[in-house]
């Protein structure tokens, strides 16, 4: 890897070409959209908003395993605010969206135009995929950004570091092309979907052969009728104080039900086996920012706070008045959760 002046000296033609193809201020973002049964994922709609902050063109990329499902996602993508083109690829090879298989699709898409940026939601999939792409293109990437802006001297991002205890500002100079980033969903509102017919053009990407060496065996999803944790408007989370899986269910579920909330958990509760690990809120789990976050029996360790401290309103129910969670909670109730929560459920029902 060469330093910037050296890179420019070594590849002056690429630098000139790029400036020619993209006049100052004109960005063109390739936005990787995730979909589920043909509907664009809410986190991807937030990533679209982040891409809009670059004030340039946006081309959406939709990849999937089944033609029909991909077609539905493409139709949906065409109606998204600010999307001027859609590229799609469908093949059984992409069914499980393995990073090894999707990386060549992104690289092929980048060949379609002179893209300045590649963006996606900071999902598990994009986390696996985009760094792999970045390395193959020999560019850095900026993950989990909470703000994006572009200027003459590059693209500036902010992102949380040290479990959200510090905010780092980094700039990718224009010579880094494309600039790759993933957007934290809870930091950007969801982009609008325009009703009515769309004249946005969609083009199919020629299929790439499957990359050998990786095979998908099975996927196990935790079934739930509740809203998805990462995008729920309300979240009720339980911690180690819930004692066991049965008690967790008995105490937390009725409160979540009465509020129409998603259920979350602290790492301690997950490690103790009370709930599935996909429900973990924190630095190493999901980052949520709902309207209302109720922490039940959670002390509020740094690693947990990193996942929920941007919630609009935080309520803590914890019998320890000195628990760190009370320092961030808008409403703290020092009480035994086994009495307080059922009472709260009863009173909310009225």
């Amino acid at each position: 890897m060469l330093s910037h002046p050296l890179r420019r000296a070594a590849f002056p033609s690429t630098r000139l070409l790029r400036t020619y193809a993209t006049p100052a201020g004109a960005s063109h973002t390739l936005l990787f959209l995730e979909h589920s049964q043909g509907a664009i994922e809410p986190a991807s709609l937030s990533a679209l908003t982040a891409a809009q902050h670059l004030k340039g063109k946006i081309t959406a990329l939709v990849v999937g395993g089944e033609d029909e499902e991909v077609q539905r996602a493409v139709e949906h993508a065409k109606k998204l605010d600010g999307v001027s083109k859609v590229i799609f690829a469908s093949s059984p090879t992409y069914k499980n969206l393995l990073p090894e298989q999707v990386t060549p699709v992104i690289k092929a898409s980048l060949g379609k135009d002179s893209f300045t940026h590649v963006a996606a939601a900071h999902s598990t999939l994009a986390k696996s995929l985009l760094p792999r792409v970045a390395a193959q293109l020999n560019v850095s990437a900026v993950p989990d950004v909470i703000s994006v802006s572009s200027g003459d001297n590059g693209t500036t991002f902010t992102r949380p570091i040290y479990a959200g205890n510090a905010i780092s500002t980094v700039r990718a100079p224009n010579s880094v092309s494309p600039t790759i980033f993933t957007a934290r969903a809870t930091a950007f509102p969801k982009a609008k979907v325009n009703d009515g017919a769309s004249s946005v053009e969609a083009s199919k990407l020629d299929l790439t052969d499957a990359v050998p060496g990786v095979e998908h065996l099975e996927t196990k999803l935790a079934k739930s009728d509740r809203p998805d944790l990462a995008v729920a408007g309300r979240v009720v989370s339980g911690g180690r104080a819930l004692k066991d899986a049965e008690t967790f269910k008995k105490i937390i579920d009725p409160l979540a039900d009465v509020l129409g909330a998603a259920v979350g958990a602290s790492r301690a509760a997950v490690d103790a086996g009370y709930v599935d690990n996909s429900l973990q809120v924190g630095q190493t789990g999901k980052v949520v920012a709902p309207e209302l976050y109720i922490a039940v029996g959670i002390s509020g360790a740094i690693q947990h706070l990193a996942g929920m401290k941007d919630s609009k309103m935080i309520v803590a129910i914890n019998k320890d008045p000195d628990a760190p969670i009370h320092q961030v909670a808008d409403l703290g109730y020092v009480a035994d959760l086994f009495e307080a929560v059922p009472e709260l459920v009863e009173k909310l029902k009225k």
């Binding site: 980094v170 100079p173 880094v176």
Partner: peptide
């Protein structure tokens, strides 16, 4: 490749 412009404290959240 990237330039670190600065590191700042996040906005403080005050318990209510």
């Amino acid at each position: 490749i990237l330039e670190t412009v600065g590191v700042a404290e996040p906005p403080k959240r005050v318990g209510g």
